[in-house]
């Protein structure tokens, strides 16, 4: 129960940073917080009270499917962490280029394309 409240608070913090902050680096941090909240939510979906790690060995073949935590959300989260790593890398390099071209990282001043 507390996990879901934490997830929603983190998502709200991430969206707050994205919508209301002007510095581009703060927006990228907000994006990272938002996606990490979704990762937390996904992992918590697979939890089972008193479960064992999802590694099948000879010893626990019999009761594996009754006691293991769900491995599928873990696979999803690993994929998503890698995707967000590359997105953050591209976004930060674009922020460097933005600073070189515009001289500022304030999103209210980067408004060449409007209308």
């Amino acid at each position: 129960m507390f996990v879901y409240i934490t997830v929603m608070l983190l998502a709200l913090v991430g969206i707050y940073a994205l919508l209301l902050k002007e510095n581009l680096i703060k927006k990228i941090i907000g994006l990272a917080i938002f996606s990490n909240s979704i990762h937390l939510f996904l992992i918590s979906l697979g939890y089972r009270k008193g479960g064992i790690a999802a590694i099948m060995q000879k010893a626990n073949v019999g009761y594996f499917s009754l006691a293991a935590v769900d491995p599928l959300p873990q696979a999803m989260v690993l994929t998503s962490i890698v995707i967000n790593l590359s997105v953050t890398a591209v976004a930060l390099s674009l922020a460097i280029h933005t600073y070189r071209k515009f001289g500022t990282l304030d999103s209210k001043k980067i408004r060449g394309l409007n209308g």
């Binding site: 994205l18 581009l24 927006k27 990228i28 994006l31 938002f34 996606s35 979704i38 996904l42 998503s80 995707i83 967000n84 997105v87 591209v90 976004a91 674009l94 922020a95 280029h97 933005t98 071209k101 515009f102 980067i110 060449g112 394309l113």
Partner: peptide, 22 residues
């Protein structure tokens, strides 16, 4: 200048959209 600005806006908006899909 215009390309970098458009790319910056696109990446922020696009990443939010794909996070929403997840």
């Amino acid at each position: 200048r215009d390309s970098i600005e458009a790319a910056m806006k696109y990446i922020i908006m696009g990443s939010i959209a794909t996070s929403i899909i997840l």
